[in-house]
Amino acid sequence: MNILVITGSAHKKGTSSYLADSFIKGAEDSGHEVRRFDAAFKNVHPCIGCYSCQKKDQVCVFKDDMQEVNPELLKAEVVVFVSPIYYYDMNAQIKAVIDRFYANNSVLRGADKKAVLMVTYGDETEESAEGAIASYKGMVKYLKWENVGIVSAKGCYVLDDVINSEYPKLAYELGKSL
């Protein structure tokens, strides 16, 4: 199975990156092919709603690192979104990538794909993740993809918090179960 993991964290050794690593290990242990796109370390221009991608050539006006991820996105059978939550939603780096899905909307919507969301945040209540989860569920419903799991890692402010929690095991098992 082809899996695309899109991360938003600007911290290579951060909490959400650690969850992504755990998920990838589980998926690879099950024989899946995994590609990772770390949005925070890429040049991804935000969508400006110019609709050029919806015209005859269906190409985005921006020539940036979305050209690297688009072929992977189109062939992926599972798309995994991994983001820290700084302020009640997925972070800006991953959101810029998601907004740029619009250029491929006619191919992505209704495609036989599965999706996963993994988020980390320092707060101890699930309330801090509700915006990210609602956004993800709305997107998956719109795209007509199948949600196959959510790992919502509360209380994970720093790396040691996530390492000493159950969340890496949950991420690993989710990757392995696909």
Score class of each variant (00 low, 15 high):
L4D: 04
A10M: 08
Y172V: 00
K75C: 13
C47W: 07
V151L: 11
D89H: 14
L178A: 11
V78Y: 03
S17D: 14
V140Q: 04
S165F: 11
K137L: 13
D64M: 06
I133L: 03
E146V: 09
V119W: 01
A132G: 06
V82T: 01
E166I: 12
P46S: 11
K56M: 10
Y102N: 06
P71A: 00
V34E: 04
S9F: 04
A39F: 02
E124Q: 14
K75S: 15
A40S: 14
S106Q: 13
E124N: 14
F23I: 02
Y88H: 15
K154R: 14
V61M: 05
L170M: 15
S52Q: 15
C53Q: 12
F41N: 11
V162C: 11
A153R: 01
R109K: 15
Q67K: 10
Y51N: 15
V34Q: 06
A76T: 04
H45Y: 13
F23C: 06
F23Q: 10
L174E: 08
N164T: 08
F23M: 04
A96E: 13
S128Y: 13
Y172F: 05
E77A: 01
A92K: 09
S135P: 00
E166V: 14
S135F: 12
D65N: 09
G14Y: 09
C47E: 08
K154P: 04
K63A: 09
C156F: 00
D57S: 10
V44E: 12
K176E: 10
E28H: 01
K56N: 10
A76L: 03
K42Q: 14
A40T: 03
N164W: 02
F41A: 09
I6F: 04
P84G: 09
A134F: 05
A10E: 06
K12I: 13
K154D: 07
K25S: 10
L143S: 07
K75L: 13
D112P: 00
K154S: 08
K144T: 09
A10W: 11
G122R: 02
A129M: 05
S128H: 14
E173N: 15
K144C: 10
K141H: 12
Q54T: 08
Y136K: 05
V116A: 06
V97E: 03
Q58S: 14
Q67W: 01
S16N: 07
L74G: 04
Q58P: 00
L19D: 12
K95I: 00
Y121T: 02
K114Q: 15
Q54K: 15
G8D: 08
G49N: 02
L108D: 07
K63G: 02
G122H: 03
V79G: 06
I24P: 07
N2H: 14
I163C: 02
G138I: 01
D161M: 05
I85W: 02
F41L: 05
L108N: 08
G155L: 02
L73T: 00
L4N: 07
Y121M: 08
